[in-house]
Nucleic acid binder design. Structure first.
Lengths: 244, 244
DNA sequence: CGAATTGTTGAGCATACTCAAGGAGCGTGG
DNA sequence: CCACGCTCCTTGAGTATGCTCAACAATTCG
């Protein structure tokens, strides 16, 4: 079972047959170096990419050279399911850390969508979760002070990493620079630094290099008004976290 | 032909049969007063709502009573296509102006999605366009100064209203208060007012009450770096605009 | 016409930015 | 193993952008 079908199983919409069909698509696998583009803006729709390992992001370049990061992609996330439907890639996807990516043949996927309504629905579900996250980011970006913004982003990433077994309630390893966090939150890297210091000072986070520890996760989540409903994770992953 | 099928026709994915099937769903139509909620956060998935007339918005209430507006819904837009798939409404939808709304029976729609892959794909397309707009809003919100933010929002709304025949290249009627614009852009209404004055002073917009005129649309679009690709409107609507 | 909402203005303050310089950590090659 | 260079983090100082509060004018609606 790949991270893809693992993730889609959350929707509780797939049968064993569906999972086999989907996993059968994962054939062409390749490695991408850190900071390399995986899919570029304006590229014609070809294969659909899926992250198997690593940390990637969606971004747009803004006039003036600023980079707007609009999403982080973790293992099991599709990069560009929409391109096959929309027909135009309106942003770029890049690896943050070294990544392993699968290229799913567009034509085969199209056929599956046409013939397997249950799978089509599960894929639709996945894009809708992306959309829900985007709405939360929009609210976060525009309507919270920057200390809460940063805290909220940390809470979300911790939760999402927990699902794929890469974090627990007390720790996570976050391979993002303060510059990247700034490009995500719409604040300067200098300010990210200062806000991080506030959070540390309030004992909401403890950092050791790229390792972030959460001395009191409840307090942090309360601080930034984080509630994970928008991630649409219906199932309980506490056992998995406990097994870390 | 309803605004819904009109809009979905853009995707060029529908046959006459598909359009008839979709339009057949529009039976229960009702009016909603300005500022009334159409769908509330947490509501269980029942019918799917479609805007036929008027101006609505998605919003979330933030702690402290601030309201974050995350989308505007114009005639032909679905309110909550996602709820039937995601199973949980994570935000609220309210009428901005008086609206006419259709309630499409969930069960029937589900059946169509299962049996008519072409229609399912068109509906998926519609949600993906929403997602693309959301990405652009995120970039706009976080990474542009507030004069460009406001200008960009005006450009987008003008363009979208043009499609449904409610604006042309020189005018639009915008039924939004400065408070609402502020809740959308993440700035205070006082600041919206001041930024509006800047735009007027630069002769980028001319306002007469709720009427906004664009003396030089090209210059305005250039000013805020607006390029409409993200709206994924492939077809040409200049004839329609000319007929206004 | 009167009440309520929306738009406009001013003043003082908070938040976040830029520019710039120095420090810490890490990988590479001598 | 150390030295070097690179990237990233940290700090300071001065500035710009946007906020709040408050009052008043203009519109809109009943």
């Amino acid at each position: 079972m790949t991270p893809m079908s693992q993730k889609l199983r959350q929707a509780n919409l797939l049968t064993a047959h569906d999972i086999a069909v989907l996993d059968g698509l994962v054939a062409n696998v390749r490695s991408v170096g850190a900071r390399e583009d995986i899919v570029s803006e304006g590229e014609p729709p070809r294969d659909v990419r899926l992250i198997l390992e690593g940390f990637a992001c969606r971004y747009k370049m803004m006039p003036g050279g600023r980079r707007a990061i609009m999403a982080y992609l973790l293992p099991g996330d599709f990069c560009d399911l929409h391109v096959s439907i929309l027909g135009y890639m309106d942003h770029t996807i890049a690896a943050v850390t070294p990544c392993v990516v699968a290229d799913l043949p567009q034509a085969q996927l199209d056929q599956i969508i046409r013939k397997e309504p249950r799978i089509a629905r599960a894929l639709w579900w996945a894009t809708l979760v992306d959309e829900a996250v985007l709405r939360e980011w929009l609210a976060n970006m525009g309507h919270r002070p920057s200390d809460r913004k940063l805290a909220h982003l940390l809470c979300e990433l911790r939760r999402r990493l927990e699902i794929v077994g890469l974090a627990d309630t007390r720790h996570m390893k976050l391979p993002l620079t303060q510059e990247e966090l700034g490009d995500t939150l719409g604040i300067s890297s200098v300010h990210v630094n200062r806000v991080f210091q506030q959070l540390r000072h309030a004992n909401l986070v403890v950092t050791h290099g790229r390792d972030i520890a959460f001395p009191d996760l409840d307090r942090l989540e309360q601080f930034c008004d984080f509630s994970p409903e928008y991630l649409h994770l219906s199932y309980d992953c506490s056992e998995r976290a406990a097994a870390l």
